[in-house]
Nucleic acid binder design. Structure first.
Length: 801
RNA sequence: GCCGGGGUGGUGGAAUGGUAUACACAGGGGACUUAAAAUCCCUGCUCGCAAGGGCGUGAGAGUUCGAGUCUCUCCCCCGGCACCA
């Protein structure tokens, strides 16, 4: 008897599949295109992480399932090789990123091929290759031409360690997404994409795209739409007006002060006031975390200005404080007694407060009016002139109407979402294709001149001067103006990695087209993506950017759809002993070892068995042996296989039930229970030897999980062709019905007996039969239950009260 | 603070309002074996020789013939966002 030698079998099939290009899809001729996408990895030097394996296998199983259901599945893989992550590693190692990346990709590719996935290696992309980033630059130019890319000076987040600016989405709790260093605010001129222009559409489409609910919620919160009112306050003895934003205009009558963000334009006119200047400088230099740490202790300074409350006509002071944020609303707010932050600020600087909202609860209202309690809910207006007596909700409408009529304000919608800052003062990225000419100004690089090649330089380290290392490469910087042919300089920043990954799936099906980023016909056939599986950590990064880019491409007429992924499912996290794997904790599971000791099929199946794909789970070295045993058992079954003289009906029912269960579970990505069902079915082989057909069903259903093993066993059982070319089995609804069922008999809701009966047994018969049983009879001295609940073929509950 | 997701054996986890703990892992017991490995069988706790009871899904209440599942109150854990006016 031969033993199950996973190394031999997996190597054998990997070779055959690669040679025959088994997973190649004819992208031009495919009849039922199905684009199965997974988030491509950045090729780290450590190689494939078990988290990558989890995601890719989860996605591959879906692809294989779709393939067996008759789809032409396109499942590409590539490398997100540009960016700070790759570059930082190269800096640490002292190698050039280009060299390091090439090395890493070679290693990754080798590992990925071991997984036994459907990857079409002829349609791969590497974002750091000029053939790819040429089109990333092209994309920048399209956005520029559409007026969606612009350079502006703005307060931005700066990572002192990565020495570059960051997008808002890349600042996590005041720290750099990549290196966890506290970011600081700087005022710099940078390139932005106007993603905010799409805020409403990004929000609206969430209603219909089929995505994991939690990812949609995260995007909704991030976009953070809020409707409110703007109010223009006249500044006393000045030509200025201050426009403030509020969602609670019902409290306007009680506005007793105004707060401006330190970056507010009016503050600039006060620069001659020494104290103001000092405060503003100090505020700007604080890191975000410092601002937050001080959050409990608000700071501010009186500007010396007064404004007129248009409703109460009172003269109120204008303050400057960093709890007002320049990027939100109008960068200015009014303070009143119904906002905890305002109350705190007013108390600290002894600014008077006037409560204007009460609840109707006498005791509570007394506290509110005496400023012993800060009420922030909706209520009824008091001390509000002609608006007194209105409810908050009515007042919000009425006061706004009044302001509009008087020309003192209007409705406004504001968002938490900010424009996408895409400049990076780094080396390892696509140079932003812009030229600055003294005479002609800002000129985009003509498309025919793309790519703007990233020059090879020796010192690629970030400078920290606010300029990219490219700025010191004279041969790169000095150029001629495409318009006037006079001397000009290139933009020296590179673009954000997230721009590379915002469109990679457009390129996959069109890699052979050298003159365009994505072929029209190809794209129409394959996009949008049918299923996208990836990490939820990209909810407000990649997954938001890519939706914006797709919408913009549609508006520019390049494509006909505006949502890139019809279906997106977030997978969970694989932990070790309950904690996130990380190098510093030394608890990283290296898949290489397990490829050797257990094989790809076992790793694949084990990872999927740990828990539902959406939830992830905990890796355990002990747990994996369960799958090894399962596969050994199957192998030995085959070795000893002998068709029985008579087919077992019990096993045939189980076969149909298993097909149903596994099919439904695969549709819902509940791989863990699908595997359990397959184990259960195969355990039945011990009791009832399977026919070849029954064994084959198991192999077909298991093949997405264990492609090598099932292929081998398929052949060994004497079947022709490949298990992977078999159609997905269907079940016979009639065959699901068992001839004898176990009827649970309860007394007062507690199980007292189980009867084996025919599934069609009638209530009357069942009751009679049950009452004959000693176990049941003794509960009914009178012989008659007071109430009977009967669930056909399943349960009988006899009630004695 | 706000928004999500959870809390079930020693562990990972199963359960359209209908046998709680499927499927595995570990531990314990048994079978096979000269022995070990491998394999197969039993194994929630508790009372009982057994038959048969009782207790068990974070806590408490409720609805129901019947609740892990539905409703309310509370506690705890994980993830995200957060001075957003």
């Amino acid at each position: 008897m031969e033993r199950y030698d996973h190394q031999k079998i997996e190597a054998k099939w990997a070779k055959i599949w690669e040679k025959n290009k088994t997973w190649k899809v004819d992208l031009a001729k495919a009849k039922k295109p199905y684009y199965n996408l997974m988030m491509f990895p950045y090729p780290s030097a450590e190689g494939l992480h078990v988290g990558n394996v989890y995601a890719f296998v989860g996605s591959d199983i879906h692809g294989r399932f779709a393939r067996m259901q008759g789809n032409d599945v396109f499942e590409p893989m590539g490398f997100d090789s540009f960016g700070i992550h790759s570059e930082n590693f190269a800096i640490k190692q002292g190698t050039h990123p280009k060299e390091q990346t090439t090395k890493n990709i070679t290693h990754f590719t080798k590992q990925l091929k071991q997984l036994g996935s459907l990857f079409d290696w002829e349609h791969s992309v590497t974002t750091s290759e000029p053939e790819y980033y040429k089109w990333t630059q092209w994309l920048f130019l399209q956005l520029y031409k559409a007026g969606l890319a612009h350079k502006k000076e703005a307060p931005v987040e700066w990572c002192p360690s990565c020495k570059t600016v960051l997008a808002n989405e890349q600042v996590i709790e005041g720290k750099c997404e990549r290196c966890s260093t506290e970011v600081i605010q700087k005022e710099l001129e940078q390139w932005f994409f106007k993603i905010t222009k799409y805020a409403d559409r990004l929000l609206k489409n969430l209603e219909w795209i089929d995505w994991s609910e939690k990812t949609k919620i995260a995007q909704r919160n991030w976009i953070g739409r809020s409707e409110g009112t703007t109010i223009k306050f006249k500044v006393v003895d000045s030509k200025y007006e201050v426009e403030v934003f509020t969602t609670r205009v019902d409290t306007l009558y009680g506005a007793t002060f105004i707060v401006l963000a330190p970056e507010h334009p009016i503050v600039d006119s006060l620069k001659n006031v020494k104290e103001v200047q000092e405060y503003v400088e100090r505020a700007k230099q604080k890191t975000e975390l410092e601002r937050k740490a001080e959050g409990k202790e608000k700071t501010g300074i009186f500007s010396g200005l007064y404004a007129i409350n248009p409703l109460s006509e009172e003269k109120i002071p204008v303050w400057i404080a960093d709890y007002a944020l320049i990027g939100y609303g109008t960068g200015a707010l009014f303070g009143d007694a119904h906002d905890e932050r305002d109350v705190e600020f007013a108390r600290k600087y002894s600014i008077p407060l006037k409560p204007t909202i009460i609840t109707g609860d006498k005791e509570k209202d007394e506290k509110i009016l005496k400023l012993k309690e800060c009420f922030i809910g909706y209520g009824t207006l008091v001390n509000s002139g002609s608006f007194t007596g209105l409810s908050s909700k009515e007042a919000i409408i009425k006061v706004r109407e009044w302001l509009i009529k008087k020309g003192r304000g209007g409705g406004k919608v504001t968002y938490h979402l900010r424009d996408w800052l895409i400049s990076r003062q780094r080396y390892w990225g696509p140079p932003i294709p812009i030229i600055y000419c003294v005479k002609c100004g800002t000129i985009p690089v003509p498309e025919k001149d793309l790519p703007v090649l990233l020059p090879d330089v020796e010192d690629f380290r970030p400078t920290g001067t606010g300029k990219s290392p490219l700025a010191s490469v004279t041969s790169f910087v000095e150029t001629t103006c495409p318009e006037c042919k006079g001397p000009a300089k290139r933009e020296t920043d590179v673009s954000d990695t997230f721009l590379d990954s915002a469109w990679y799936f457009f390129r996959y099906p069109s890699v052979e087209f050298e003159d365009e980023p994505f072929d029209k016909i190809r794209t129409k056939k394959w996009l949008p993506v049918d299923m996208y599986i990836g990490g939820h950590e990209h909810a407000v990064l990649h997954l938001l950017y890519t939706r914006f880019v797709t919408m913009a491409l549609k508006d520019m007429g390049h494509i006909e759809f505006e949502e890139p992924f019809l279906k997106f499912r977030a997978h969970g996290l694989i932990t070790k002993e309950g904690t996130k794997m990380s190098k510093s904790k030394g608890n990283v599971v290296n898949p290489d070892e397990y490829f050797k000791t257990h094989g790809a099929d076992t790793i694949r199946t084990y990872l999927m068995f740990i828990g539902p794909l959406a939830e992830g789970g905990d890796w355990s070295d002990k747990g994996i042996v369960g799958i090894s045993r399962f596969f050994n058992r199957l192998w030995n079954f085959q070795e000893n296989f002998k068709a029985p003289k008579q087919e077992s009906n019990e096993l045939e029912v189980a076969r149909n039930q298993t097909i149903k269960k596994v099919t439904e579970d695969l549709e819902g990505l509940r791989y863990n229970t699908a595997i359990a069902a397959l184990m259960e079915y195969s355990n039945g082989f011990l009791k009832n030897p399977p026919t070849k057909e029954q064994f084959n069903t198991l192999l077909i259903l298991l093949s997405p999980f264990a492609p090598h093993l099932t292929e081998e066993l398929w052949g060994k059982l004497g079947n022709k062709g490949s298990v992977h070319e078999q159609p997905w089995p269907t079940y016979d609804a009639k065959a699901l019905e068992e001839k004898i069922v176990r009827l649970v008999v309860q007394v007062n809701g507690r199980v007292r007996d189980i009867l084996e009966v025919s599934p069609g047994i009638k209530e009357k018969e069942a009751v009679a039969l049950a009452l004959k049983q000693e176990k049941i009879k003794k509960w009914f001295p009178t012989g008659k239950p007071k109430n009977i609940v009967f669930v056909k073929g399943k349960l009988l509950n006899l009630v004695s009260y």
